[in-house]
Nucleic acid binder design. Structure first.
Lengths: 221, 221
DNA sequence: CCTACCGATCGGTAGG
DNA sequence: CCTACCGATCGGTAGG
């Protein structure tokens, strides 16, 4: 059922929502204005009444993602405490941001492929302070909190960001490799890789699962 | 300068080469048959003489990538020795495969986004034995060679594959974040993340394996 | 006059 | 392999 008569502002928002979904699935070139119009339930000229051109629809989609990102950013930067807890908080915010709507990750990835120069500007502009802040956290950790000394903070942050992007975007595909409970396993391993490659073990493991046994008591099948 | 009169077989190969480059840069939907024809230096119907449809050009591009992959696979599976050395050899082969031509990574990523179902079949088919073999290496390492006990071998391999794909595909973009010597730093950090998240330090670090600390307590409150 | 559209069609280009 | 085209569909805009 449709919400009957929706004010004109709802059309704009609906176009952005449907365009994000269609761009994520088929790309910008693979999506016709008619597809967007059909998804919203209006005519194509109606879409072009709210957006001067298809290009403006794309910009609106990217701005929507960036706006949500800027909402998440403060929570992320103010994330809890220190050490492993702070890492888990920051990583969790990042992962949830894209996992909450994998289409965000797909659109960003397609944008990076389709318009590398524009994505460079985004990285040098709005995204850079956030990357720098997280990298500073890591550098502080290297000076006394048990991070690996040989971590390249900036490169690490970029790689982890890419990994989260790719993992959330491609989750339905990669799940074809694992048969059982694939979602939980991928998410867990993703967080483990990010954590284990940052923290030297004496600080990273709070739960003492490895009491340095001469022989591991874990039975491998 | 052009090699003057090229036999008809060269046209087919040239179409695949140029199509790979164009598909990587602009995507399948963003590339016209005329673009490919222009890049090769023939007419559009000439392209369609060698390939019944644009879809066949795409398949040929994917088969080209898969063929190269299958050339690399033996070297990769027979990679040297054990432990860290074998890891470096396997990871090195994987990374070189995509770094040698980043367009391979871009085409694969676009394919995963555009045709998830077809990519699933590829993962369940030709790619799976390779993933399973590498995962088995890791499981063997967990039983005595110093890999982290909590590594999810299959999920780890998939994530590292994704990370290498994304990092090579997006390298020109991410290099916008780092100013100096970005290439070397990203490659080095990529390998470090993969290695550090797999090997427990007493085996991975030849310098100073940490003795077991009495308290593995973390600094958090 | 404004808004929010519609039916029809613009110039170009797609795959074939 | 080229010239010459097709049915359709592209993004975008006309008048009403």
């Amino acid at each position: 059922m449709v919400a009957a008569r929706a004010p004109e502002l709802d059309v704009r928002a609906a176009v952005v929502t449907e365009a994000m979904r269609l761009f994520a699935a088929h790309g910008f070139d693979g999506t016709a204005l008619q597809d967007i119009a059909d998804a919203v339930g209006v005519t194509k000229p109606a879409v072009l009444h709210h957006f001067p051109s298809k290009e403006h629809v794309r910009q609106a989609v990217l701005e929507e993602i960036l706006a949500h990102w800027n909402e998440t950013l403060p929570r992320l930067l103010l994330a809890a405490s220190r050490g492993v807890d702070r890492f888990d908080a920051v990583f969790g915010e990042l992962h949830r941001f894209f996992a909450a709507d994998p289409n965000r990750a797909r659109v960003v990835m397609r944008e990076a492929l389709d318009r590398p120069e524009q994505m460079k500007k985004l990285l040098r502009g709005p995204v850079r302070p956030w990357l720098a802040a997280v990298a500073d956290y890591i550098k502080a950790g290297q000076r006394g909190l048990g991070h690996y000394a040989d971590v390249d903070a900036e490169a690490y942050v970029v790689h982890i960001l890419q990994l989260v992007l790719m993992a959330t975007a491609a989750a339905p595909v990669t799940r074809a490799v694992l048969e059982d409970d694939a979602k939980g396993r991928y998410d867990r391993e993703l967080a483990r890789i990010a954590r284990a490659s940052l923290f030297s073990p004496r600080d990273a493991q709070k739960e003492s699962p490895r009491p340095e046994p001469a022989r591991s008591k874990k039975a491998a099948r």
